[in-house]
Design a protein around this nucleic acid. Sequence first.
DNA 1: CTTGACCCTAAAGTGTGCTTGAGGGTTGAT
DNA 2: ATCAACCCTCAAGCACACTTTAGGGTCAAG
Lengths: 120, 120
Amino acid sequence: MKIGELAERSGLTVPALRFYERKGLFGVGTVKRLGNNYREYDESVLETLDLIKKAQTAGFSLNEIDSLLGRYKVEGPNSPEIRAALTEKLKELDDRITDIMAVRNIVVEKLHKRKKPAGK
Amino acid sequence: MKIGELAERSGLTVPALRFYERKGLFGVGTVKRLGNNYREYDESVLETLDLIKKAQTAGFSLNEIDSLLGRYKVEGPNSPEIRAALTEKLKELDDRITDIMAVRNIVVEKLHKRKKPAGK
DNA sequence: CTTGACCCTAAAGTGTGCTTGAGGGTTGAT
DNA sequence: ATCAACCCTCAAGCACACTTTAGGGTCAAG
């Protein structure tokens, strides 16, 4: 599929997709070029984009996503460095979830507190 | 307490604290000025900073935090607009948690997958 | 009364994640 | 052949969250 269609299907903008590509977020072979130099995307890029979106929401920068995705593809799941990095990311995720739950509780509390904010 | 001590106790930098103040994140009365124009912070600012940090980790921008914190203080917990905004934030938080859990599951899966990444 | 560790303001600089603009080729329909 | 609707490559610009720089005051100790 071409970039316009991918933009529509992924919900991203055309320039954003080109930007991601320059960042190196798409694995080799996922973006080819047609005779007219137009980009031709593999269907699999949709999953990659979905992961990128979720990882971003999870608080990771494109660089972090890139290095994890890229190194993972190169070194595989058995590299001690990759395993260490993943373990660290897991800890970060858990910390983030803890913080989000804390904020969530505060919001819930404020929502439940009607009239007279004095409720020990 | 003065800004240097607050920086140490909060883990933030001195310029960051001044930046937050310009953004209006500290409620009235929490930052006074001494005779020499030095800032004098109320102890309560530590809790505010803690909330700000958590809300940031939860994915909210300083502007969002500011407007929610500020409007809440002015309009109280019973304003329909505040309740609507909080309800929306709650939805955002839940969506974010869902996304983080999805990323977490992917990381966990990759960590458990040793040798032979083929495990239907 | 100077030295060092503090504090102040205003303004410019930085990294991230894009968007916008300029200038131009390609494709398909009319 | 020309028009809209695509696509391309730079390069510059923008919002956010700070940091850094520049140029000064303040204060306790020696």
